[in-house]
Design a protein around this nucleic acid. Structure first.
Lengths: 123, 123
DNA sequence: TTGCTTGCAAAGCATTTGCAAGAGC
DNA sequence: GCTCTTGCAAATGCTTTGCAAGCAA
């Protein structure tokens, strides 16, 4: 655990926001100015491989964001204007997919994406 | 409506698969060999702007795929191994997000992503 | 002719990689 | 000293753009 990795991890943990690699680079760079982009990418990928982070994209792949909550299943609340993503704890069960719609898939997971406009973008 | 656009549109319509730009280029190129990549991209973007297509990405933004069904709301069935995506018609209502979890968002849409392994990848 | 579309090649952008220098054990 | 990490710069891969040529009205 080096200073660089700690800086990256600190930026991500403790919030339920999904940041882009660039946002992580900016925020971590305020704490550790000599941090390079390559190290941010390397660290994000390592954390992803370790299962701490999950990579998400809710705008059709245009921007990649890192979900700090890699372990617990949860839903997502997405602003279609600014791209803001927040986690939502599941309180109700997701409707099961009827067998005839499964097309032979072996299902592992199901999550819901709620799309809307956040308060900032509405004002 | 030119021959190139028709070739691109034909590849996409009539199935519920989500193809990548490259897959569209390959398949349309079998019908119209002089088709260029730039034209495929241009056409896909135009169809997307028109609302005929929707751009999706279910692998964290690594690959971008085009959903031929841009109009009707539907869910998605995704193979986490090969990336195959299929549409699923909604038969049950998506659980509503409790007001206290909405964080001031004005909600427009909710859809479910079912993840699993397809028959091909299991064998 | 006029305007829109195509195809090539070049540019752009986010991400990854190679490699030499540096930090930690 | 040896290994792993960093940072720069170059390379990659997908997508977009500029521009000259081509086609349609």
């Amino acid at each position: 655990m080096t200073a660089q990795r700690r800086a990256v991890a600190q930026v991500l943990t403790g919030n339920n926001l999904h940041l882009t690699a660039d946002e992580v680079f900016e925020r971590a760079g305020q704490v550790l100015p000599e941090l390079s982009r390559a190290t941010v990418y390397n660290t994000l990928n390592e954390l992803t491989d370790m299962g701490e982070l999950r990579v998400t994209s809710f705008d059709g792949g245009l921007t990649r964001r890192y979900d700090p909550n890699g372990h617990d299943p949860h839903h997502h609340l997405v602003c279609t204007v600014c791209g803001l993503v927040q986690d939502v704890l599941p309180e109700q069960d997701v409707p099961e997919l009827p067998r005839r719609d499964r097309r032979g898939f072996e299902l592992h997971d199901a999550h819901i994406v709620y799309e809307g406009i956040c308060t900032d973008c509405r004002s």
